[in-house]
């Protein structure tokens, strides 16, 4: 058995393919002036890349001895929230386009895509509660704090730029993607350093 951790590059490559596909499709949809409904339709295939990405990360974790039952549960929950989010957003946009709801129904439709994100935050909490491996837990907390730091910096700088009318307004639901990018960058940085 190998003594040192030798994680493969496959998860990084899958992650890169996923990010490029998501952003590429998103920009493509905007460039083609697709409606909300069709944007969601074309975003589904790149979302499916999450499955091989997470499987690849788990295989790499098994090879490098960097895995735990809690981490596997966290990854499963990650898939659940990601696909629930797409489904909820798809449903909300479709209903909004078709019915043009007002009042309480509009509130309900508007909050629907946020519910999977609430589940995601719960999954984060559960991971930290369920993880019994203190080193893996410490690593995750470090990565999460890096993501939080990035979010605070980006949100503050962007907020002031926005106040001075230098940049356009950005919706506040962007907080989670920015945080997740920070988390991913911290994880990649740790892999690159080989620690």
């Amino acid at each position: 058995m190998a003594e040192d951790s030798t994680p493969g590059r496959a998860p990084l490559i899958w992650g890169l393919v996923f990010v490029v596909a998501m952003f590429g499709t998103g920009f493509g949809a905007r460039f083609a002036h697709l409606s909300g409904f069709w944007t969601m339709v074309v975003m589904l295939p790149p979302m499916l890349l999450l499955i091989p990405m997470i499987r690849s990360a788990e295989r790499s974790g098994n090879l490098s001895g960097c895995t735990s039952p809690a981490l596997k549960r966290y990854n499963r929950r990650g898939l659940i929230w990601a696909f629930s989010y797409v489904a909820a957003l798809f449903f909300a946009i479709s209903v909004n386009d078709a019915l043009k709801p007002e009042g309480p129904l509009l509130w309900l439709i508007a909050v629907l895509p946020a519910l999977p994100i609430v589940y995601f935050v719960w999954a984060l909490y559960r991971y930290l509660v369920e993880e019994t491996d203190e080193y893996l837990k410490m690593r995750y907390v470090t990565h999460a704090l890096f993501g939080l730091g990035l979010l605070l910096v980006v949100a503050t700088v962007w907020g002031f730029l926005e106040s001075f009318k230098v940049v356009p307004h950005v919706e506040s639901w962007m907080t989670v993607p920015v945080w997740a990018i920070g988390l991913g960058v911290a994880q990649i940085w740790q892999r690159v350093r080989g620690s």
Binding site: E3, C66, Y135
Partner: peptide
Amino acid sequence: QVSRQSVNAI
């Protein structure tokens, strides 16, 4: 009952 990565890190 820890990960191999933990042993390696220690």
